[in-house]
Nucleic acid binder design. Structure first.
Lengths: 126, 126
DNA sequence: GCTGTCACTTGCATTTTGCAAGTCACACGA
DNA sequence: TCGTGTGACTTGCAAAATGCAAGTGACAGC
């Protein structure tokens, strides 16, 4: 069982799982942060800020806060003096892999010129 | 082969398929419209406007315009005098099914209280 | 002290959202 | 012919989110 202890609050919009998922990851940046953590092994703020899409730093800070509040990302200091943090996906975060895989499949099929991921991308069992 | 003739334009952000998919469906309403067309058999504006989440009508009109421009939805008049339209998913639109299925799976697992879809939801082959 | 780095925060103009009300074309019944 | 109703939107506008640039604070190292 991969579900975490405390669960996310139900959306006020409805009980529809799609509506609820969208309330968490339904915007143009959130899943890009998850992508960088999941596929590119980034862990530090600076690395996340340096994505190809150049997410504005205020939005990056905001998205990391929300992802942490949603239990998708964990933030912890990996050193003191000066304090430096690293961000890592929780199981709840890596469970987003299948969803992102389907996004890639759809985009590769319907948006010309999108990059194809390496074959192993489709082989990861979990 | 299920890909349509003309493809969507590449995003200016990057060639990443995830970023590109998000430019099309990365907001809180678009996939709810697709959901209603795909799972609930809605075809008319009025039906779409009556979703549980109560999408504002100006946003519904805007999203339908974008979905049409993206080749995900087709609009056609089903009668004249007065002209009345119906909206239907193209193959590009129904290809979003696997993505939405994964969304449902993730939400059911991580957001307490989200509704479980009927079992047949997971059985549709296409 | 001086410079640099990391991880953010702040200010502010622009864009998008959300809510309510309005419009337009027509059908229909009195 | 006039009033009422319906479907499919559009318009106005306040509030919130976005995007850009610049600023801040805690240190390390020279």
């Amino acid at each position: 069982m991969t579900a975490s202890a405390r669960l996310l609050p139900l959306s006020e919009r409805s009980k529809c799982p799609i509506a609820n998922a969208l309330d968490v990851v339904g915007d143009r940046w959130t899943l890009l942060v998850v992508r960088d953590l999941l596929f590119f092994g980034k862990v530090r703020y600076k690395e996340l800020a340096a994505s190809t899409e150049r997410i504005p730093t205020n939005l990056l800070a905001d998205r990391l806060r929300r992802l942490e509040a949603a239990g998708i990302v964990e933030k912890k200091a990996y050193q003191k003096r000066p304090v430096r943090y690293e961000y890592r996906l929780t199981p709840r975060g890596s469970d987003l892999l299948p969803l992102m895989r389907e996004m890639v499949t759809w985009a590769n099929l319907h948006i010309a010129g999108t990059a194809r991921p390496p074959a192993r991308f489709y082989e990861v069992g979990r």
